[in-house]
Nucleic acid binder design. Sequence first.
DNA 1: AGTTAAACGAGATTCAATCTCAATTAAATT
DNA 2: AATTTAATTGAGATTGAATCTCGTTTAACT
Lengths: 144, 144
Amino acid sequence: MADKNLQKFKDVLRSEHLKVTPQRLAVFEEVCSTDDHRDADDIYLSLKQREKAVSRATVYRTVDLLLKYNFVSRIDIEDGKWRYEHWLDCTRHDHLICVRCGNIVEFSDKNIQIREKRIAKSFDYTLVRHVLNLFGYCSDCRGK
Amino acid sequence: MADKNLQKFKDVLRSEHLKVTPQRLAVFEEVCSTDDHRDADDIYLSLKQREKAVSRATVYRTVDLLLKYNFVSRIDIEDGKWRYEHWLDCTRHDHLICVRCGNIVEFSDKNIQIREKRIAKSFDYTLVRHVLNLFGYCSDCRGK
DNA sequence: AGTTAAACGAGATTCAATCTCAATTAAATT
DNA sequence: AATTTAATTGAGATTGAATCTCGTTTAACT
């Protein structure tokens, strides 16, 4: 599964005349290794710890690549850092974020997506992506 | 209309034992004076130009206050800056943003809101706010 | 193997946002 | 109306994520 996607990543790089470098593969692998939502520095530090160190600049550059070619999505929980998650299973990822503890739950709603398309059409926009974040208190944090 | 809201702002400040200062009133007034989506620096510069100069720090601080007490909402068009808009008419403001020219169209969809509530409930979260941004090409930018 | 253009790393830079702290001022108290 | 006090302000320093620079390295084509 992951290997298949790694292959896809390599194919995209080659077809775009970009180089297949150990650094790019390491970042790709690292991002795909968990279902967490991690920022660029988290990824940088994990790689360092695993003795696959890649410079911060390259992490940023690679993550941008992954975003551009749709291997990851980027979410913004409004704390000033972007977080990344792999896109291996093709379901949409919208987020329900606890404003106290920062816990993130994922969901997907077909019905909302249909309405979004309708809205974009009504304003004569061609939709490319959407951001839907719900903020609230999780059951643990409510009342604290 | 605007005066009524200014009064409401003063009342909130007093009830929170915060001071009613000329700087705070100037920022409030400036934010409410247009329906644009402006960042903190835009607001700072407008005030300066109108010879009602307030320091950048105070603009940031006041805008946070306005956010906290629900006089403005903050939107993120993912260019690294937060933008603010007043909340004078009580309709919701979701945004359809052109990824090329940055133009912003506002909309509101009851149906989506109902589904959001349902989703939050299903995960046992208490919803406090939501962010819904649609990104696409506007009719002018499509094809360019 | 040699060539070349892309990619890398270290560290500098940018810029929005936040923080610090001395001076000022709103508003409660006498 | 003067005094007290605690909050607020402004100027400039600081932070930190993200980007940029540029000399060095390396993937990949011939």
